[in-house]
Amino acid sequence: MILDVVVASTSRYTKFGSVRDPDRAEDLSGKVILEKIRTAGYTGNYLLIPDGVEPIQRAIKTSSADAMVICGGTGLTALDLTIEAAEPLFEKTLPGFGEIFRWQSMKEVGTRAMLTRATAGVFMKKPIFCLPGSPGAARLGMDLILAEIEHILKHVME
C-alpha cells in the first residue's frame, strides 16, 4: 500500500521549496507520519507544498497513491485552507475520523481540541485524511488512520 504524505506549509515551502524528504524541510510532523507508515510496512511518498486551495487540490487530483494524508492547514488562520480545498472534492465524508481525533486530542490538549478541523473523506476511491500540523497531531492521526486503513480501503474499493 502506498500513502502520499502532503505537508501544506507556506513558511516551510518558502524556505525549502518543493522537497520530497521531511528531513530536507526540517519537518518533524512529516517525519513522524512517514516513520509510522513505514513501520506499518507501507510505502510513503512525501511532498511539501504551499498552503492554498489550488496547490492542495492539485496534490489530491494528481495523487496515484492508495490513500493520502495532508498535514497542516486545518486551523483557523487565513492561510489554513486545507479543509476548504479538500472537502469540495469529497464524494463521501468520514465524520467519525474528525470526531474521534478531537475526542482523543482532548486527553492531550484539553478543550483546545475544539480548534482542530481534522477531517477525512473519499475522492475517486482514495481516502484523504486532513491532519493538523503539529507532531503530536501527526502521531495521533496516524495511529487512528493506520488502525483502520485496510478496512477503509476495502470498503471504498467495493
Rank of each mutant, 00 (worst) to 15 (best):
R20N: 08
I49Q: 04
I152D: 00
K125T: 13
G133H: 07
P50C: 05
I100Y: 13
E150C: 08
G17Y: 05
I128E: 14
A138Y: 03
V32S: 06
Y46V: 07
R58L: 13
L3A: 09
K15S: 10
K36V: 01
P88N: 08
G121R: 08
Y46Q: 06
S29I: 04
F16W: 07
L3M: 12
P50T: 05
L89A: 05
S64L: 06
T10L: 08
L47N: 03
R139G: 02
R24D: 07
V6T: 03
R139P: 00
S29F: 00
L131N: 15
T116S: 15
I60L: 15
V19M: 00
K92E: 13
P132Q: 07
I49K: 03
R139N: 06
I145D: 08
R112V: 11
I70S: 07
G136S: 11
I37G: 12
D143I: 00
E87M: 04
G41A: 00
A85E: 10
L144H: 03
E26S: 15
K107W: 07
G133N: 09
L79C: 04
D23E: 02
V32Y: 05
M124C: 14
R112I: 09
M1Y: 05
R139C: 01
D4A: 07
D51H: 13
K92G: 03
L144D: 02
F101A: 12
I128F: 14
K154C: 14
V7N: 02
S105I: 15
L79A: 12
G30R: 01
N45V: 02
H151W: 09
M124H: 15
T14A: 09
A67N: 09
K107D: 10
K31H: 09
A147E: 14
A67C: 03
L131E: 13
I70N: 04
H155I: 02
E35Q: 11
A8E: 06
L140R: 03
A118W: 10
K15F: 06
M68G: 01
D51G: 12
L153E: 09
S11A: 11
P22K: 02
Q57N: 12
Q104G: 03
S18G: 04
C130V: 03
A65H: 11
L115S: 10
M142K: 08
I152R: 00
D23A: 11
K36Y: 00
F90K: 02
A113M: 14
V5N: 04
S18E: 14
V109F: 09
I70H: 03
M1L: 11
V32C: 06
R12Q: 05
I70T: 05
S9Y: 01
M68K: 03
A59M: 07
L140I: 11
M68A: 05
L3C: 10
A78P: 02
I83N: 03
D27R: 04
I2D: 10
G44Y: 02
D80Q: 12
P50M: 10
F123V: 07
L115G: 06
M114L: 15
T111N: 13
E148G: 11
R58A: 14
C130N: 13
N45A: 11
A8S: 14
R24I: 00
D66L: 09
S11V: 07
A59E: 05
T77P: 10
R117M: 15
G96H: 09
C130D: 13
A86C: 11
